[in-house]
Design a protein around this nucleic acid. Structure first.
Lengths: 152, 152
DNA sequence: AATCTAGTTGCGAGCTGGTCGCAAAACCGA
DNA sequence: TCGGTTTTGCGACCAGCTCGCAACTAGATT
């Protein structure tokens, strides 16, 4: 089983049509996969596997959560999708191309997208000082959101 | 059960003596707790619960992992200990007072401490733009360490 | 020192997020 | 339409962590 993208995210226009997208990337466009990718395209922003399963089941009721996990794996190998590790909860997935950072509220679990612009200098500083090359967009920031701050 | 520190981390000198420390914070200095806190003091840097259990068992062989988790909970309520959520692996704990950021290598799992100095401006920027007040030191940065970069 | 009691422990069961092996089904090129 | 792979659904399983409960203990009171 080859799992090398036939298409290239950087140069290929991405059709927002799950089936075409899968074929373009040279992988089988099965009904469950189409349902998962389609749900991911429709849903804007990071989402956990369980919720994604529910969304996909709207179109493809028999789809199993294990299949969703496997599909996420495939899409991620193709570079179509990113994992975001968020705190102690389940990890999140989102369409690639958005490299904003995700911030999770420790109190209420709210998720905010934070434009990554602010982080460039920090990433460089970390690399200079420790040799670590950060991959922002793969981990979540934790903190307290404005609403929960008021309630404290 | 009250769980409010009698001593204050900011003003109280911290004896590096687990038993005294526990008493100072007004909680029962049981043998298992002393063993856990002692291991934590001796071990420098973030550590996961399983490894911490093994260290503590060196002094207190019968100590159970559930007890270690509960002890971590208590110490954390007292502000003596911080959780760090690290990627997909188990979460890490460390003595409070060190607010450096933890960076985890995606490839080999190596852990690096990164002085938090570089992050001040970023934290402010995030607060300004999104209202989120980050708690650095509670989440881990992910990336690739210098060694693994070479191997790629 | 002996007693008392709230707080703590060890233990096993249980929960959640995620992975795996396998037989049956689906995809898709010929 | 058919055939060989790939993929799916399913249930079993694993790791990390939490919980309920009966037994035990620290440490205050006498």
């Amino acid at each position: 089983m080859r799992r090398e993208p036939k298409a290239d995210l950087d140069t290929t226009p991405i059709p927002h049509d799950a089936e075409a997208l899968l074929q373009q990337f040279g992988c089988r466009a099965t009904r469950p996969r189409v349902a998962v990718l389609d749900a991911l395209i429709r849903h804007d922003g990071p989402i956990d596997a369980t919720t994604l399963t529910e969304l996909a089941q709207a179109n493809e009721p028999s789809i199993h959560e294990a299949t969703v996990y496997r599909t996420i794996g495939v899409l991620s190998e193709l570079g179509l999708v990113n994992h975001v590790h968020a705190g102690h909860g389940p990890s999140l997935v989102r369409l690639a191309g958005n490299n904003d950072l995700v911030a999770v509220c420790q109190d209420c679990g709210a998720i905010a997208d934070i434009p990554q612009a602010a982080f460039g200098p920090m990433i460089k500083a970390v690399e200079r000082e420790s040799g670590f090359v950060l991959e922002p967009g793969h981990f979540a920031l934790e903190g307290v959101c404005a609403d929960c701050l008021e309630l404290r």
